[in-house]
Design a protein around this nucleic acid. Sequence first.
DNA 1: ACATCATTCAACAGATTGATTGAATGTTTG
DNA 2: CAAACATTCAATCAATCTGTTGAATGATGT
Lengths: 223, 223
Amino acid sequence: MTDIDTHHPLFDLSADIARTLGHAHRLVLLHHIAEGEKAVEQLTELTGLSVANASQHLQGLKRAGLVQTRRDGKRVLYRLGSGPIEALLAALRSLAAYNSVQIRDLIEGSTGRSNLLESITREELLRRMREDSIVLLDVRPEDEFAAGHLPQAINIPLEELENRLAELPREKLVVAYCRGIRCVLSADALAILKARGWVARRFELGFPDWLDAGLAVEGYESG
Amino acid sequence: MTDIDTHHPLFDLSADIARTLGHAHRLVLLHHIAEGEKAVEQLTELTGLSVANASQHLQGLKRAGLVQTRRDGKRVLYRLGSGPIEALLAALRSLAAYNSVQIRDLIEGSTGRSNLLESITREELLRRMREDSIVLLDVRPEDEFAAGHLPQAINIPLEELENRLAELPREKLVVAYCRGIRCVLSADALAILKARGWVARRFELGFPDWLDAGLAVEGYESG
DNA sequence: ACATCATTCAACAGATTGATTGAATGTTTG
DNA sequence: CAAACATTCAATCAATCTGTTGAATGATGT
């Protein structure tokens, strides 16, 4: 069983596909082809590759079934192959984005504290908001959000989070907050986000604390 | 813009990940590690690789962030890295399975007719049912299915198909059928299946025709 | 400190891949 | 039919990847 499982031909097929994706030029070509059928010359212009080199990489993609060709007069047009190719490309990009965020976070975020800490200070939050390097996520119910929230925050109540993950970019650090240090909504949100591959932190304070500190808010009527 | 887009570092990161996945040994190792933390020795037993070779590939996986390590006494334990790795592996396997079905289908299915035909004859259906090389899908409503259906068929009414795709294996050809040649349910099912990357055909006849031909059925009371 | 075990490192030969060059193919136009 | 064009093929060299060998490292137990 081990042997059957280990030498399953699907591993070879998978490796072949992965190896074909394992070159930046081919990924760039695929990226452009995925946006619509393109001729070789167009692709060379878009990528800056030589014609022969582009053709060579395109042959590789074709061999692996990732693209298909069609002749139109003098030109040969490349289009995406059949099967769940876009899903694979999305998954690949998703993991790459995750890793890049993680690396960026390890470098930029070295403010002395351990990066393993799940929470983020008010100072760091303010800095990152200025840098636009985060997505601020308010996980409180809609009505509380409507009554006032941190600037730039987007609202996805905790109960809806799993179904609305698509709204959150993977390229940025997600900072979740709720009502304050005793509120567990944001901690639950972290668990969901991390399990699905996002890089997430928790803002240790909440909207009420933010308000008390006299910082700018949105959607709040002091009257 | 073209240039910025083309030289986006995400392509390099993606290529690095893909290249690392592009070897059957590493995929097999990952497969085992994904099932739970494992020591190097266990992995060599499971895969049949030499210790040094396994270690070398594991280093590659580690460099790409696909696995992480932890020391426990003499042993070094490998576990899956963080991020949406399993999603990527699933997408890769999914495409490989799709391609393998397609290839198998091109070879085995060469019965003279073009493989581009979407429908499958009764003879071919019977043959493939004997070979167990297909999944037979009944897309009629539940009550009709309950009143009688083709042997081995599974029932997913068309309206539920999109939400229940997970029940269908990608490794086999899916043959959808409904009430007969004039019934469009199975044609709609094909569109959904193909769009999501399955390899699917339509059985041109339906349950009533099958019944008329005197072939074996399940769940049908002639009385 | 020593022997032992699990794992990694270093170095080598053989194979594969990537970019470049120039020739070859197939298609349209004059 | 010849010329012009778009693309592919073939051949080359440098760079990288693979698997094997044996030595080196790190942790454990006597």
